[in-house]
């Protein structure tokens, strides 16, 4: 069962690429506007060889990780606070709900005015993109922890920090993880927005590479970088979030 299922997307993908290649080579479109897969491949290969792709990816990943970790480190305790206190929920909680719907590009002008064209501005945009989604997810999943678990734990003498760490947090973990996943997706989007709009001298990320491709009218570079961006997002999901979610589902018998 396993190999045919893995083969299907590969075969279909290869067919599509072949069709695309043939279409561009047949001269029906201008290959400056629509580069053929082999042209993108050539750019990819040269960018790999001169190291520009690796260094851009590294710069971007570092910003993403840092911004995501800061966003989660703020979002988790603030979300827990919102679940605990109705005052926090009515203030920070409602504010988070509103700001969560704000497209993260909107933070770019704020960041540039407040910090200037620098690393801090990029980080600010990523953190703003992450934190609200995490706050909302943590608040909601803590609020929906079954009261029966709390009652049982309390009669066994669990209170305060013990109750939070040993009962509330494990019970809310599935919701927290999906909130982090959402926060990660938002962080990724906002980082691309920031890198495209905030032109920094130091640190040339994937977004800047994309931007440079546009200025040079290099469609092969633009499409190539876009593919790398998709690949990074997919990889993060495959090697980080999916295994955690699978483990959570399996250990609690939620697997279908």
């Amino acid at each position: 069962m396993k190999s045919p299922r893995a083969l299907v997307p590969i075969v279909i993908g290869l067919l599509l690429l072949g069709g695309w290649e043939w279409f561009v080579r047949s001269g029906r479109v201008d290959d400056v506007l629509v580069p053929a897969p082999t042209q993108i491949g050539e750019w990819f290969w040269s960018a790999l060889r001169d190291g520009s792709l690796a260094s851009a990816t590294w710069v971007t990943m570092r910003r993403l990780m840092l911004g995501f970790i800061i966003g989660a480190a703020i979002g988790i305790p603030v979300g827990a606070l919102c679940a605990r206190s109705s005052l926090a929920r009515d203030t920070i909680g409602i504010m988070s709900l509103g700001l969560q719907t704000l497209p993260s590009v909107c933070w770019v002008p704020v960041a540039i005015i407040a910090f200037g064209q620098n690393e801090a501005a990029v980080l600010f945009v990523v953190v703003m993109g992450t934190v609200w989604a995490v706050v909302i997810a943590v608040q909601e999943s803590v609020l929906s922890v079954q009261p029966l678990y709390l009652r049982a734990a309390m009669t066994m003498g669990s209170r305060g920090w013990h109750l939070w760490l040993r009962v509330i947090f494990p019970a809310a973990l599935p919701g927290v993880i999906s909130g982090l996943k959402q926060g990660w997706a938002f962080a990724w989007r906002s980082l691309m927005a920031a890198e495209i709009f905030v032109v920094i001298l130091s640190g040339f990320g994937l977004g800047s590479l994309l931007h440079a491709g546009r200025e040079l009218l290099r469609m092969d570079q633009v499409v190539g970088v876009m593919l790398v961006v998709v690949g990074v997002g997919l990889l993060a999901d495959l090697i980080f979030f999916s295994p955690i979610e699978r483990w959570l589902r399996r250990s609690r018998g939620l697997e279908r």
Partner: peptide, 29 residues
């Protein structure tokens, strides 16, 4: 006025913690 370790409850619905195995559940208290 509040729950205490001197009065343990076994609830009508089973209130085992799904994130712990059987031994860890018994160890909780």
């Amino acid at each position: 006025v509040e729950p205490g370790r001197d009065r343990l409850v076994m609830f009508q619905q089973d209130a085992l913690f799904p994130w712990l195995d059987a031994l860890e559940n018994v160890l909780f208290g």
